[in-house]
Every structure is written in C-alpha cells, then in structure tokens.
Design a protein around this nucleic acid. Structure first.
Lengths: 186, 186
DNA sequence: ACCTGAACACCGTTCAAGT
DNA sequence: ACCTGAACACCGTTCAAGT
C-alpha cells in the first residue's frame, strides 16, 4: 500500500473506533470520513461495506477469542472453560453497540466480511460445548448453533441500556440452563 | 375525528401493517405514506413518531396479552401459566420484525408511545413470576426486569433468520433455567 | 380542521475529474 | 495509484400554502 493510502487507512480506523464506540455499529460512515479528514471515495475504497469496517474494528477481539479458545480447550474443567469463553465472547461484542446483529447475520451470509471470523467463533464455541457434553458438564440436547444463538441473545440483552447493569446475573441464569452443577460463576 | 381524517388514519394503519410485516419496524414512513396515498404531513399528524405507529399496530396484540395474563393468573399451574404467557409474548413480538428493540427501550422512556403498554406487559409477567416463585415452580433469584430481559432476548433471537427455526427449542432451553421440574413444554 | 408537498438536513453509493 | 467531492436517490421532519 502506498504511504498516503496507509495513513488514510490507519486514520479511518482510529476515528471509526471512537465514533462506533460512541454511536454504535450504525454510525454514519460519512461522519467517520469527515472526522478522519478523508474524502467519501477513500472511505469506500478502504471499507467498501459497513461489515468490512466492523471486521477491522473487531479483528483484535476476534484473534483474542480464537487464542483463548485454544487455551481453554485443554484446560482443567470443560464446564468452566465453556462458561469463561462465552463470557469473553459477550464482552467482546459489547465493545461496539449493535455489532452483535451483524455477527449473527454473518453466519448465514458468505458475502459478509464478518463471515469467516464469525463462523470461526461459532466453531470454537461448539468445540468447547462438545467437550463439556462429553464430560457430562453440559446438557446434550443443544448444538453449536443453539449455543451461538444463546451467546448472541445474551450479547443483545447486554447491549440494551435497560438491562446492561444485569449482564452478569443474566449470564449466570442462562448458563445454568446449559451447564450442570456449577456455582455462580463470578 | 372528521370523516376524511378517519379514512386516512385507517388507510395508513392498514398499509403500515403490510409494509412493517414485509420490511420490519424500521420501514420507511415516507414509503408507507406514499403507498397509502397520503401526504407526508398527514402521516406525521396521525403518527408523530415511529413508536406511535408501532403502538397502534401492536395494540391488538397487547390487549390480547393483557387479557391472557388475567386468565393465567388464576389458572391451575403457576409454572405452566408463566411459560404459556412468555411464549405468547415472544409470538406477539415476532409479528413485526425488529419491534422488540423498541419494546425494550420503551420501558425506560416515559416519552415513548409504547411505554405504558410495555410497562404493563412487564408487570403482567412479573405477577406470573411471583406466583410461580411462591409455589416453588420458579427460581427465586430473578425479578420482573430479569424476566423481561429474558423474554426480550428470546424474542430477539427468534427475529434473526439464522435462528428463527429453533425458536421453540431455545425457548425450552432458556425457560428450563427459570422453571423447575417441567417436561419440554410443547 | 385537515391535507399537501416543497424545503431542509441528513444518509450511503457512484463516478468523473484531478494529482 | 490514489484521492476528492459533486451528483444521485434515498431518509425523517417541518411548515407555508391550500381546501
């Protein structure tokens, strides 16, 4: 990438991080370009769709979740591993308001820039679920898609101002439906 | 209301029902006015905010839920009553895609046209919860707000095309976290 | 009383013109 | 190669002018 293009890209991403944190995943792309001091066309070349931008913003979090899943897959308690990873998944989505809807829709849309990452997240969760089920720590009548739905639902609830303060409690209530014989997890 | 005003109101509501069913709660109000053969100003006088329109669309469902709650409050099993009502709440929200976000936000916004209805729904759910808790059919560490959050989360998950087909299963999984000693409910 | 539609300030996307 | 910004087709809201 040419030096000026790289500078614009970095600047757009930095500004987008601030604006999307402030206003959520539906923030005005025009406004981001404006505040980054960049033309509208430049915005669209670097990030042709909103998903492309969200993917870049979530990149670090996605990589962290992937690494964390790899660790947890060989950790002591399969039940605790699943609960820990789910909690981090929800926390990651909570970084940018409204992003969970895109993360859920991306699963079924191979065209989405978020597709690969989200399919990966779903698969990582599914592996932790299978291990927990094999050890008798998780109920066996749910699959990876159910788990992703539950994680998405929890993330969405946490996104709502009316419920944000009860994220931890609701997490415990809902995970108790999946995991057996656990104390409150925090 | 003058006869022509009444006709415009009815026409707007009929068209809105179709358009919001097709495109969800974020449908273009301009488009609704256009398809109703009505000026933009008329649209805004009858329905000054999007919430006003949604409230009118959901009116029937809200009234049905209120009546159903009254019945269920004196029905045989407190646990079954809560589960039945929750299921109907989720089904009601599912009539119009995306409406659950407004129904959740309205709880904390007294200015919203949906406020009174949604506070009423929340209170009805809370009454059924309290009765179930008193009979030992529901866990006692959740309150009416937790229940509304869980109902909202389920409604949101059902709204996502990726998960819509598993609504019933996810409902059973999540309600099992709240209710004790119940068989799969459908 | 009630209705209409132009005007305004936004939005995302495209693309001709510049460097 | 890369950037800019006008042009286009939308959006919700307001309000002067009509009946």
């Amino acid at each position: 990438m040419r030096a000026d293009a790289q500078k614009n890209y970095d600047q757009l991403l930095a500004v987008a991080s601030v604006v999307v944190t402030e206003e959520g995943a539906g923030a005005s792309l025009r406004d981001i370009a404006r505040r980054a001091g960049v033309g509208l066309g430049t915005m669209h070349r670097h990030f042709p769709t909103r998903e492309t931008l969200l993917e870049a913003l979530l990149r670090t979090g996605f990589d962290g979740l992937t690494a964390r899943a790899a660790e947890l897959e060989v950790s002591g308690s399969a039940g605790d591993a699943l609960a820990s990873w789910l909690r981090e998944f929800v926390a990651c989505a909570a970084n940018y308001r409204g992003v969970i809807a895109s993360m859920v829709a991306a699963i079924e849309d191979p065209e989405s820039a978020l597709h690969a990452s989200c399919v990966g997240m779903k698969a990582a969760g599914a592996r932790l679920l299978v291990r927990a089920q094999a050890e008798g720590a998780a109920r066996t009548d749910i699959d990876g898609t159910d788990l992703y739905a539950i994680a998405g639902g929890l993330a969405w609830v946490s996104d709502q101002p009316a419920f944000a303060a009860r994220t931890d409690h609701l997490f415990d209530v809902v995970t108790s439906a999946i995991l057996r014989d656990r104390a409150t997890s925090r």
